[in-house]
C-alpha cells in the first residue's frame, strides 16, 4: 500500500488556534488518525495533554466528537460507547482511545488490560511522549532509562515498560508500533487495524519538544531517529503474525543503525549522561536486547508459519 500524499483528505482535522505547544507530536498524530479513519470516529481521551490541547469550550481544537474522561477510565468508557453503538445497529463507528503513556501504562493500565482481555471492539492508541508532560514532565513507567524528568533529576533508573509486548500477551488481534516521524506508516497501520474486529492497539511514539528538551522544529526528525537508531522498532502483530514494518527492517542489521548518541545529543533530557559512556552503553544494551526479542518474535510469529498463533491457540 503506497499512500499518495496528494490524495489524503485536506480537512482541518486539527483546528488551528488550539492549545498545543509549538511542534506538538499529539496534534500531528491526531491529524493522521482522522486522515486514516475518516469522520466515522469518536475519540475517548483521558486526562493528559490532549485534554488541554482542545482549548477552551465551547470550542475544541480537535475536529472530532470527543468524550473526555477521567484518567483511569479511557478503555472502559470506550467499551461502553462501542456497546451503545452496537445496540443501536451502528457497527460502523470506530471508537478510538487516544491516551498518553501515563494513561496507558500507569493509571489507565487496569482498564486497558480489562478491555484487551475482553477483546472489546475498539482501537486504542497510546500516544507515548515518555512522561507526564501535561503536569510538567514527571516520570512515568514508560520514561526510558537515563532520561531526566522533574521527578528523576539524575535520570530514570529503570527501563521503559514494554506495553506493546504486554498487549500481545493478552492475545489481542492487532498490536503495532508507529512513530509520528513516519506518518504514512502510521496511517497504513490505522487503516489495516480499522478492518479488523476486536481489540486493536497502536503504540505511537510522540517526541515532545518541551519534555524532551529539543528544538520544536525537530519533532519529526527525533521521531525518525528513534527508529533509525534501532531504539524504537516499528512492527505489526496481526492475528498471530509478527512482522517488522518496511521502514524498520533495515535496522535489524546493527551496522545500518545510526549511532544512539545522535539521538541522545539532540535532547536536553539526556544531557547529563552524554559524558558517561557506561550510561550510554546501558542504552545500547537495551537496543540489543530489544532486537533479540524482535528476532524471537519474528521467528515464532512469522507470517505463514503459524507457530506463534498455535502457541496462543493452545493456551
Amino acid at each position: 500500500m503506497v499512500i499518495n500524499l496528494r490524495k489524503l483528505p485536506d480537512k482541518k482535522y486539527i483546528m488551528p488556534g488550539n492549545a498545543a505547544c509549538p511542534g506538538c507530536p499529539e496534534t500531528m498524530g491526531l491529524r493522521y488518525v482522522k486522515m486514516a479513519l475518516g469522520d466515522n470516529v469518536v475519540l475517548v481521551i483521558p486526562a493528559g495533554c490532549s485534554s488541554v490541547i482542545q482549548g477552551i469550550s465551547p470550542y475544541s481544537g480537535i475536529n472530532a466528537p470527543i468524550l473526555n474522561i477521567v484518567f483511569a477510565a479511557a478503555a472502559s468508557a470506550a467499551t461502553g460507547m462501542k456497546a451503545a453503538f452496537e445496540t443501536m445497529g451502528r457497527d460502523d463507528v470506530h471508537v478510538v482511545v487516544w491516551a498518553g503513556d501515563g494513561g496507558t501504562g500507569d493509571i489507565g493500565f487496569q482498564a486497558l488490560s480489562g478491555a484487551a482481555e475482553r477483546d472489546e471492539d475498539i482501537i486504542y492508541i497510546c500516544v507515548d511522549n515518555e512522561a507526564y508532560m501535561n503536569t510538567g514532565i514527571q516520570r512515568s513507567s514508560l520514561t526510558p532509562y537515563g532520561a531526566w524528568t522533574t521527578t528523576t533529576w539524575k535520570g530514570k533508573k529503570e527501563h521503559k515498560k514494554n506495553i506493546p509486548m504486554i498487549l500481545i500477551s493478552h492475545g489481542v488481534k492487532y498490536v503495532a508500533t508507529a512513530s509520528v516521524g513516519y506518518p504514512t506508516d502510521f496511517i497504513e497501520k490505522l487503516q489495516r487495524a480499522s478492518k479488523i474486529k476486536g481489540f486493536r492497539y497502536i503504540h505511537l511514539l510522540a517526541p515532545c519538544p518541551v519534555g524532551w528538551r529539543f528544538d520544536p522544529a525537530l519533532t519529526a526528525k527525533v521521531a525518525q531517529l528513534a527508529v533509525e537508531t534501532g531504539l524504537f522498532p516499528l512492527y505489526e502483530y496481526i492475528n498471530g503474525e509478527f512482522k517488522l514494518s518496511p521502514i524498520a527492517k533495515r535496522y535489524k542489521d546493527p551496522s545500518k543503525r545510526r549511532p544512539i548518541i545522535e539521538y541522545l545529543k539532540l535532547q536536553g533530557r539526556y544531557r547529563h549522561l552524554l559524558d558517561k559512556p557506561e550510561e550510554i552503553k546501558k542504552i545500547e544494551e537495551y537496543i540489543e536486547n530489544t532486537w533479540k526479542l524482535i528476532e524471537t518474535l519474528e521467528e515464532s510469529f512469522a507470517p505463514g508459519k503459524d507457530r506463534g498463533k498455535k502457541i496462543f491457540d493452545a493456551l
Binding site: 488551528p16 488550539n18 482542545q54 469550550s57 470550542y59 480537535i62
Partner: peptide
C-alpha cells in the same frame, strides 16, 4: 460541551 472550531485559544 464544545464543538470543533478554529481558535479555541
Amino acid at each position: 460541551l464544545s464543538r470543533p472550531a478554529p481558535g479555541s485559544v
